[in-house]
Amino acid sequence: MNITLITVGKIKEKYLKDAIDEYSKRLKRYCKLDIVEVSDEKTPDNASEKEEIQIKTKEGEAILKYIKDNMYVIVLAIEGKMLSSEELAYLIKDLGVKGDSNIAFVIGGSLGISKEVLNRADYKLSFSKMTFPHQMMRVILLEQIYRGFRINYGEPYHK
């Protein structure tokens, strides 16, 4: 299985880089993992709605360049469906069984995801109605993907 994380922005904090590296290393047993970082656009203070849409659109165009036709795209979005860890594990397993072995998870920038990326999504996933820093969300997502593989392989970890 191929998992691609397409994310907006770079990770600057060492503790987040360390966690990302740890989960990336753990996931090598289960899948091929690629992490793609696209540039985040500067958001001026007191940006207008029009400016925010332009920023999301530009970030969205950068994201879409990395989405291939054969990818099953799961976008992290507040309005998406909330799943338990077991349900996410089943989703990943079910996609593999159906032949969708190229999964792209997309994490947008601080303003969210453009409508163009949302329209390309095959699935919208929400971790909570709360807003999380997109850098931290990368760690949380990788941990949940790892947990999902452990669940699918019947290995201890998820309790």
Rank of each mutant, 00 (worst) to 15 (best):
S84M: 03
R147N: 03
K28S: 15
N70G: 10
G96D: 13
L83V: 03
K68E: 15
I3C: 03
K17P: 06
L76A: 12
V38A: 04
N152T: 13
G99K: 08
F149W: 15
T131S: 12
K159N: 12
M1Q: 10
P133W: 00
I74S: 02
K129C: 08
M136W: 04
M71V: 04
L125R: 01
T4C: 13
G80E: 06
S48Y: 08
E116V: 05
D100A: 09
V117K: 01
K124I: 11
V8H: 01
S101H: 12
L91I: 03
S110P: 05
N70L: 11
D40A: 08
T43C: 00
G108P: 04
N102I: 03
G60M: 05
T131I: 14
I35Q: 05
K81Y: 06
E52A: 04
L111K: 01
V106I: 11
K56D: 01
R150H: 06
K50P: 06
E87R: 02
G154V: 09
I151N: 09
S84I: 03
E79R: 15
A77N: 15
I92T: 08
L64G: 09
S85I: 02
I74H: 03
K129F: 08
S110A: 13
G148M: 04
G9P: 01
K98Q: 14
E87C: 04
Y157P: 11
T43A: 02
K81I: 14
A19S: 14
G96Q: 14
A121L: 06
C31N: 12
F149A: 09
K124W: 05
F127P: 13
V73Q: 04
Y23M: 04
E22R: 07
G99A: 09
I107P: 03
Y23D: 06
N2V: 04
I35G: 07
E13D: 14
Q144E: 02
G96M: 13
T43D: 00
N46L: 09
A62M: 12
D34V: 04
E13P: 05
V117Q: 01
L111F: 01
C31K: 06
K68C: 11
D69Y: 11
K159M: 08
G154Q: 08
Q54D: 12
G9I: 02
Y146L: 02
I35P: 10
G99L: 10
A62E: 14
I92W: 01
V73P: 09
N152L: 14
I6V: 15
L64N: 07
E79S: 15
I20N: 03
H158E: 05
G154H: 08
F149V: 12
M137F: 05
K50S: 14
I113W: 00
K93C: 13
Q54R: 05
K124H: 14
F127N: 07
T57A: 10
D100L: 07
V75I: 12
I140A: 13
Q144K: 02
R120F: 06
K32L: 07
K17C: 12
Y153S: 15
I53T: 12
G108M: 00
D100S: 13
Y23T: 06
P44E: 03
K12C: 07
L83Q: 01
V36E: 09
E49H: 14
